[in-house]
Design a protein around this nucleic acid. Structure first.
Length: 487
RNA sequence: GGCGGCAUCGCCAAGUGGUAAGGCAAAGGUCUGCAAAACCUUCAUUCCCCGGUUCGAAUCCGGGUGCCGCCUCCA
């Protein structure tokens, strides 16, 4: 088993060879917490979550670090607008962020360092860069001298000469060269500050990731991940700072995810077309949102649309209905995993099929595609078991399939909830969306049952039509009539 | 202007040299008192266009067209 991943630095798919065999350190650039998480955050952190899940599934011991940037210009500005302490504001949105991540089914990172709790580390790093001549103080600020680092541009494949055209100096900055960037910013009156050898101030934007990744994972670590928009300048600057300070390679591999677009345009705050995660998870089933995000390869762009999310909801309903059917079947009578099953080879192929799709640059779309025939098979076994097969053999096959699916689905983080409970809450969500009153539905179903018992089928059909008009589908079964709200 | 990406069925979307996954929608069938769900079948001789390389190309090369992104805060 080898894992292949697309490395931005090498600009091609490479084989993952961790620094220490069997162990992977992964640092994902976290959010700047001054507002609710948007769909772009959801896309990105679901992608890295699946990377972590899959590496763990493959037996790697993963140390997953995702920071919070909780000190920054935008936080300071937003806090000032609201008359709040900046750290109070960022703590609030960090909590909200964690709520959203949980709703999306993401695992909690092993460490979530914050800038405000790592200022001493940051200062040590800045100091080191000043002492080694890679950085210089200027009127309370400290800047990194880009031209002092030979490898600058190697990640984003840019030449210094090309960059010069776009570089600029903001009023109030004291750069010697327009390409230089701030490591430390002098505090303006009223701003949050920490003491430093250069006076009161706070960290610049890029330095925190260098300091905190080194602290959590070491000066050299395996994978650094983030959105494509961070390649330049953020990640380019991190490399410059970190490698200039340590003299060692920084991250071995760089992974970047594609953007979320809305109406085929990049979703971004400056365009004002942002969809926040909270609004979406309130309106739609979060598992469907996750399935939608994973149905496209993480490096490509993904366009958000209502219809795509509705398709995902349908598929999620099918998935959980299938799993619930299997659980019911299994619950009928105890059966052990050991013994005769139907189509042993096919059963054995399930987990490898999914895992191998994921080995190839975490191709979740391919993996989801490979799941389909197994779900159809499971439905078939539960509803129409092969005529000649022994009940125990069918049941054992269902059990093995269910366990195989559980393992495969755990890599994706989909279908991992308790099926029956999930379906109940999903139905409640759909019923609420369509203003369906469950008590009334059940009353109509009882009335229809009486009509059917009396063989008054025209009355029964009229009641079905009434339910159908409400948006309710009913299913007659041996144990009575069940109802659902189609997604 | 510099750099980069993308273009695959009505819609979404895998596939980067070996002869087009999967999902949604649609049509037919099985099942059913009738349904729903489920299952089965059908649904791109073709991958934006034009050339080229090759025994063979959606996949590689050249040209064109269209869309998008980065170069400024952004996942």
């Amino acid at each position: 088993m080898t894992i292949r991943l697309f490395d931005t630095l090498a600009n091609e798919k490479v084989t993952l060879e961790p620094l220490a065999p069997g162990k992977v350190g992964l640092y994902a650039c976290g959010p700047t917490v001054y507002d609710l998480a948007h769909l772009g955050h959801a896309r990105c952190y679901v992608a890295w979550d699946v990377v972590v899940r899959h590496l763990r599934f493959r037996g790697f011991e993963v140390e997953y670090v995702r920071n919070f940037t909780d000190v920054d210009d935008k936080i300071i500005r937003r806090a000032a607008e609201r008359g709040l302490d900046p750290l109070e504001l960022s703590r609030h949105f960090a909590d909200e962020f964690e709520t959203d991540m949980k709703a999306l089914g993401n695992v909690t990172p092993d460490a979530q360092p914050r800038v405000s709790e790592n200022v001493p580390e940051i200062l040590r790093l800045v100091q080191k860069l000043v002492e080694s001549g890679h950085a210089y103080p200027a009127q309370g600020d400290v800047y990194f001298a880009v031209r002092s680092f030979a490898g600058y541009g190697k990640l984003s494949k840019r030449k210094l000469e090309d960059l010069k055209a776009g570089a600029r100096v903001e009023p109030g900055e004291h750069k010697k060269d327009p390409l230089d960037f701030a490591l430390w910013k002098a505090a303006k009156p009223g701003e949050i500050w920490w003491d430093s050898p250069w006076g009161k101030g706070r960290p610049g934007w890029h330095i925190e990731c260098s300091a905190m990744s080194a602290r959590c994972l070491g000066e050299t670590f395996d994978i650094h991940a983030g959105g494509k928009d961070l390649v330049f300048p953020h990640h380019e600057n991190e490399i410059a700072q970190s490698e200039a300070a340590s003299g060692k390679p920084f991250a071995k591999y760089w992974m970047h995810n594609g953007f979320v677009t809305l109406d085929d345009e990049k979703m971004s705050k400056s365009l004002g077309n942002v969809a926040n995660v909270r609004t979406l998870t309130e309106a739609y089933e979060p598992q469907a949102l996750r399935l939608f995000l994973l149905s496209t390869h993480y490096r490509g762009p993904i366009n958000f649309s209502e219809s795509a999310l509705q398709d995902a909801e349908k598929r999620v309903a099918y998935l959980y209905e299938t799993l619930a059917k299997a659980e019911q079947r299994i619950a009928l009578a105890a059966v052990s995993e050991e013994g005769e099953v139907l189509e042993e080879e096919r059963l054995r192929a399930l987990v490898p099929a999914i895992a191998e799709a994921m080995d190839d640059d975490f191709n979740s779309a391919e993996a989801i595609g490979r799941l389909s025939p197994y779900l159809a098979w499971l439905n078939e076994l539960c509803e129409r078991p092969p005529a000649g097969a022994k009940k125990e053999v069918v049941r054992r096959t269902v059990l093995r399939l269910r366990h195989g699916l559980a393992a495969a689905l755990s890599i994706l983080g989909i279908g991992t909830e308790h099926p029956q409970r999930f379906l109940e809450s999903f139905r409640a969500r759909l019923a609420a969306r369509r203003h369906i009153d469950a008590a009334r539905v059940e009353a109509l179903i009882r009335e229809r049952a009486d009509a059917r018992k009396a063989k008054d089928f025209s009355r029964a059909d009229a009641l079905r039509a009434e339910l159908s008009a409400m948006g309710v589908e009913i299913m007659d079964g041996p144990d009575g009539t069940a109802w659902r709200v189609p997604a």
